[in-house]
Design a protein around this nucleic acid. Structure first.
Length: 558
RNA sequence: UGUCCGAUGGUGUAACGGUAGCACUGCAGAUUUUGGUUCUGCCUGUCAAGGUUCGAAUCCUUGUCGGACAACCA
């Protein structure tokens, strides 16, 4: 056997080098979400990356909430994030909060002031912005930039104790007002925000900004490789500048950026996802059409399928849009192995088997999963009247249509061969029922004379079936990249009006005891899972994904 | 416009100066009691132009195209 040597992505290569060179003996990564929304599949990529590094290099990974802005953050989000990380199958070594470090951060800020590297600015956001000008020309220094250390110390202390109003002053780092990198033009370290914090209560009314808090938090935790997305690339010089102020050993966290995940036919920004929820374009963060982890979970996706997906898409620095079809491939692959098969008729039409005894019911044996011997078998009831799928019959069928049609014979899965006899229509010409005859010799789906029947269709016994609501989902947006806007449009203009279709289906009786979250393959129709809206009176299923359908392709391509 | 980053089939991602490979998609076929699964085969690619070299996707130069940044958000 050839050794299966996986190619390393560029981050793994950096880490390998750092380990070989002796820069680090072991590595620590972190996943640092802000608790201001639910995690989505893009976060899953980051989670798999960070926790994957821990596994590959036998290191550690912390979950750290970047909770530096109490005006946007909520406990609900903290809890959902913890759930989602666990559900994906990862265990963090430590659970931390940036707010754990507020006191240390404050002390370092004092130190910076004492070093003459930070100052209190009393200008408005507008003025500060104007003075930063633009990257092509030098900035303008704040008139407060060079006030005395004593005054800075006094004012910063006053900010902390709440003596000043929100927006009246900020603490700024004294970096370089002429830098071509705007983030270096005296970035704001602290702002006044008189809002209680979920974890620190009303202890603080000043809160550190991301750029200041993030790197220092990494440092406190001993993070070796601080992995973030590409848009933070320009922040890196500032990340390093802040670390320069507290450490010169070189054994410091290193920020590495990679390209975030984009998926076709959906949006991935938290702001937009929040809007979809708040404005009721979807029914909550876990709506199965959402690209959130909780949405995918409810839709019927498995953690394995998402992890396999994350593995396969790789990690690089170029912008990308991954075809949502790839995600679907991985859930089909996983469910094909795991999901038991059952029969469900989504759009039922009645078939009467005229030569089958009126009061007879028999039990047939069906395989639960042809991909898995151990899945066992189940019993199916069969009688004179059954339901089949409306589009499994065609009155004027082309040659290539090998389901039920005049003059044709078809196999009822695990049951009998049946032959078309006649059609009963209502006064409007709609088909009411189909009359067929069966071959009693073909029980189980095989005929002793060995004749071939090309088509096999699914069915349920009309006397012994249950009703259920099926929610058939389609992509949420009609445009491959809903953020690629045409004139005068917003991404909302590309919402797919048919992203959810609800049908009432007939299911085989065995599904009666199906439990919330259970996943099935409805043969020939797709993978479905039991939704939490189910109750003892009514079962509700979500369609996770349909099956590949080469007949649909033939129809489509003529 | 200024700085930074990136560019390999339709979509992603490898190749670390030495045969451009893999996955998905697409197409064709085989098998099949799911038009599913499985199996086989095929199509399509190094942004451009120069240079270095026996040899360049890879190194250098220039250009082109795409992205990020100019929040008291993260």
């Amino acid at each position: 056997m050839e050794e299966n040597k996986e190619a390393l992505n560029f981050i793994e290569q950096i880490i390998t080098n750092d380990l070989e060179s002796g820069k680090h003996d072991n590595i620590i990564t972190r996943f640092p979400p802000e608790p201001n929304g639910y995690l989505h599949i893009g976060h899953a990529k980051s989670i798999c990356l960070n926790f994957g590094l821990k596994e590959t290099f036998n290191g550690k990974t912390n979950l750290r909430f970047d909770d530096t802005n109490p005006s946007k953050e909520e406990l609900e989000y903290v809890n959902s994030i913890i759930d989602d990380v666990h559900w994906l199958g990862f265990e963090y070594d430590n659970l931390f909060y940036a707010s754990d470090y507020f006191e240390q951060l404050y002390e370092w800020a004092i130190m910076l002031i004492k070093d003459g590297k930070a100052y209190v600015d009393e200008q408005s956001p507008e003025v500060i912005s104007i003075q930063r000008t633009n990257p092509t020309i030098n900035g303008i220094e704040s008139p407060f930039r060079n006030r005395s250390i004593e005054e800075n110390l006094r004012l910063f202390e006053e900010m902390r104790v709440g003596k000043h109003n929100e927006g009246s002053m900020v603490l700024r780092a004294k970096v370089d007002m002429n830098s071509s990198n705007m983030h270096m033009r005296d970035p704001i370290m602290y702002r006044i925000m008189k809002k209680p914090h979920d974890r620190t209560g009303d202890k603080w009314c000043i809160y550190p900004m991301y750029d200041y808090a993030h790197g220092q938090s990494d440092y406190i935790e001993g993070i070796t490789h601080s992995i973030c997305t590409l848009e933070f690339e320009v922040h890196r010089p500032l990340y390093d500048w802040f670390l320069d102020q507290i450490d010169t050993s070189g054994k410091r966290p290193r920020q590495i950026e990679f390209a975030r995940l984009n998926l076709s036919y959906t949006v991935m920004s938290k702001r937009k996802l929040l809007e979809l929820v708040k404005e009721n374009y979807v029914k909550g963060w876990d709506d199965p059409r959402m690209p959130t982890i909780s949405g995918l979970r409810r839709r019927g996706y498995t953690p394995e399928s998402i992890r396999n997906f994350a593995d396969r898409i790789g990690v690089a620095k170029r912008e990308n849009i991954i075809d949502v079809g790839l995600l679907e491939f991985f859930i089909r692959e996983d469910l094909n192995k795991k999901a038991n098969r059952v029969m469900a008729v989504l759009d039922p039409i009645k078939v009467i088997i005229t030569n089958y005894p009126e009061d007879k019911t028999e039990i047939l044996i069906a395989q639960n999963n042809p991909e898995d011997e151990k899945a066992g078998t189940r019993e199916l009831s069969f009688s004179r009247e059954i339901f089949i799928e409306r589009d499994d019959f065609m009155e004027n069928a082309p040659n290539k249509f090998f389901r039920l049609k005049p003059g044709g014979e078809v196999r009822l899965r695990y049951a009998y061969f049946i032959k078309y006899e006649k059609l009963i229509k209502d006064e409007n010409g709609n088909i009411k029922e189909i009359h067929c005859s069966y071959d009693p010799e073909s029980k189980g789906g095989k005929s002793p004379d060995g004749r071939k029947v090309k088509g096999t269709i699914h069915w349920v016994d009309s006397k012994n079936c249950i009703d259920a609501e099926l929610r058939l989902y389609d992509r949420l947006f009609t445009k491959e990249n809903p953020e690629d806007l045409e004139e005068n449009k917003t991404y909302l203009d590309y919402l797919n009006p048919d992203s959810l279709k609800i049908v009432n289906a007939k299911l085989e009786k065995s599904l009666e005891i199906a439990k919330i979250g259970e996943k099935y393959q409805f043969e020939r129709k797709g993978y479905f899972c039991v939704d939490k809206d189910s109750n003892s009176k009514k079962l509700v299923f979500n369609r996770t994904v349909d099956l590949k359908d080469s007949w649909a392709k033939i129809v489509k391509n003529g």
